[in-house]
Design a protein around this nucleic acid. Sequence first.
DNA 1: TAGTTATACATAGAACTACAAGGTATTAAA
DNA 2: TTTAATACCTTGTAGTTCTATGTATAACTA
Lengths: 107, 107
Amino acid sequence: MGLSKDLVAASSTPLILSILNKGESYGYGIIQQVHDMSDGDISWADGMLYPILHRLEKKEWIESFWGKAETGRKRKYYRLCKAGLDELKLQRKQWKQLSNMISQLEG
Amino acid sequence: MGLSKDLVAASSTPLILSILNKGESYGYGIIQQVHDMSDGDISWADGMLYPILHRLEKKEWIESFWGKAETGRKRKYYRLCKAGLDELKLQRKQWKQLSNMISQLEG
DNA sequence: TAGTTATACATAGAACTACAAGGTATTAAA
DNA sequence: TTTAATACCTTGTAGTTCTATGTATAACTA
C-alpha cells in the first residue's frame, strides 16, 4: 500500500500498544501480526520496529522480559504497562477525532 | 488536545487537501478553519503551516494565486490540483484502513 | 550435509525534517 | 496611538527516524 512515512510514524505506536493490550508479544511476532491484519499491506522492517519498542519501553509504556519460543529459540516478550494503556486510550481518541474530521470534510 | 507530533504530521496534509477540495482558501484562513472544525483542539502555528503549503505546491498537489480580501488586504489563495485530489483520495483510504485496524484491535 | 531461508534481536549514525523564533507589513479596534 | 488581529515568509537547529549492517540459531531443501 505504500503508506507515507508520516502515517507509518503516527500509526505504529497505537498499533503496537493495541496488539500488546490484547496479549504479550515479541518484535518479530508483532511485525507478522500487523502484516496479517493489514492483508499484507503493511510490512514493517525489523530494524524499524526494534528502536520503536525500545523507545516505548524507555517511556515505560511497555516492559520486556526474556522468554523462550516452543522451538527453544529465545525471544524478548513485551507487555503493556498501565501508562501504556492510558496512552493507548488517548491516542485512540485522537485518531478518532482526526479520522472524523477527515471523513466529515468528505461529505 | 496536544496531538502528538506524528499525528499532526500525518493529519495536516489530508486536512489541508480536504479543505481546499471544498473550495479555495488561504494560509491564515485554513488555520482558522481547522481550529473551528476541531472545536479549538487544534491550533496550528502559522510558521508551521506555510512551509507545508509550499511543499504541497512544489509537489503540484495545490497551486496558488494572489488575491484580495474584501478588506483590501492581499492574500495568497490556494486551490487543489488534479494530482492533489488523487493524493487526497489515497490518503483518505489509508487513514480509513489504519483507523479500522486500530478500532478492530479495540474490540 | 551444505546451503538457503526464516526467525530473532540489536545499534550507529547518515539523512532528514519539523517548527520555534524571528522578521515584515497592513488593517481594525481600543 | 498603540495594541491586537490579520497575513505572509524563512532560517537554523534541535531533534528524530530508520536504513544499513551486524550477529546468531532453527528449519528447511536439494
